[in-house]
């Protein structure tokens, strides 16, 4: 007798008055539901569609009102132009060098911030001391500050340490402001890690770093992935720091793309812009598609405090 009731509730079908299945779907025809969901899929996919199809069109097809249509004649020229020919800085180099800049910036910044965050999380949860929570709160606030508040002094500091206008300088900036998030992730993860394990290791004679490297770190895979993805996405997508602290040689991809699109000289090559936009989006999009589960978890724990 129990089974049919449970089925009605989970499947949301059948006569609601008799079975008690009253989830929305019981009243709203499934067709309408799927139509609505489908319509929103179109809404979210539309810009991506526009970017992709128009990046393969000759310019005239776009300017003649054919933005929504599939390419009449497919061409890879906009991609080639965007990647290696478009005039962005002084030289017509395309986006390639800036893509490289972004890579050189994002890899070390993510690595360093993640490692520091892991160590911080370990200390804050397993070697608690008076004021640890307050300290964590102070670190956490760093996740939320509007970065405008640090632009002026950071520009001076980078000049002072000779890192102004370099990729090195950007790495430093991103490490500093990435630590907060990395610490948040690892702290919340390690808080749920059984303290008895740490105690057992202490009795076994393991020291501070032995416990970290032999016990904690080998079990940190999931949160490390979350943290790396989050930092990667954030740093790759950053525009403010890149625009403020980089010069022509060290600009990251986002800044270069914006320059490409905003440049007011000559004809607007929309197809090249779209190709460039996809290039800038591809790494993070790829990460999202490959490891979406971890990406979502990162988003969540960044907002809903574990």
């Amino acid at each position: 007798m129990a089974a049919p009731t449970a089925n009605a509730v989970t499947a949301g079908t059948g006569d609601p008055a008799r079975t008690g299945g009253t989830r929305l779907s019981a009243r709203l025809p499934r067709l309408v539901l799927y139509a609505l969901l489908g319509a929103f899929c179109l809404y979210y996919l539309l810009p991506l569609y526009v970017m992709v199809v128009n990046s393969f069109k000759p310019l005239e097809e776009i300017t003649s009102g054919g933005m929504m249509a599939l390419p009449g004649s497919w061409t890879g020229a906009p991609w080639r132009t965007a990647w290696s020919e478009a005039q962005i800085g002084v030289q017509p180099t395309g986006l390639r060098p800036y893509f490289l800049n972004s890579l050189l910036m994002v890899v070390p910044a993510v690595t360093i911030a993640t490692l520091l965050g892991a160590l911080n999380g370990y200390v804050l949860t397993k070697w608690r001391f008076r004021g640890a929570t307050v300290l964590f709160g102070l670190i956490l606030f760093g996740c939320f500050i509007p970065f405008q508040i640090v632009l002026i002094p950071m520009a001076r500091t980078l000049g002072f340490i000779g890192a102004a206008g370099t990729v090195r300088g950007l790495v430093f900036v991103h490490v500093v402001y990435g630590i907060s998030f990395a610490t948040l992730y690892f702290r919340n993860y390690y808080a749920a890690f059984p303290t008895e394990l740490i105690r057992a290791a202490q009795i076994d004679g393991a020291g501070f770093f032995q416990i970290f490297f032999r016990i904690l770190l080998p079990s940190s895979g999931p949160i490390a992935v979350v943290c790396v993805i989050w930092l990667f996405t954030n740093i790759w997508n950053d525009f403010l720091f890149g625009a403020s602290f980089a010069d022509y040689d060290s600009q990251p991809m986002t800044v270069a793309l914006n320059n490409l699109v905003q440049s007011s000289t000559g004809v607007k090559e929309y197809n090249v812009h779209f190709a460039g936009a996809i290039m800038a989006a591809l790494p993070t999009l790829l990460v999202y598609i490959v490891a979406g589960r971890f990406f979502v978890r990162g988003l969540m724990s960044g907002s809903v405090k574990g």
Binding site: T233, N237, L299
Partner: peptide, 19 residues
């Protein structure tokens, strides 16, 4: 529904600017 969150605001801006 969620993929736009992975994009840079610059990419979003460029796409919508021309749309």
């Amino acid at each position: 529904y969620l993929y736009p969150m992975a994009l840079s605001f610059i990419v979003t801006g460029v796409a919508w600017k021309w749309i």
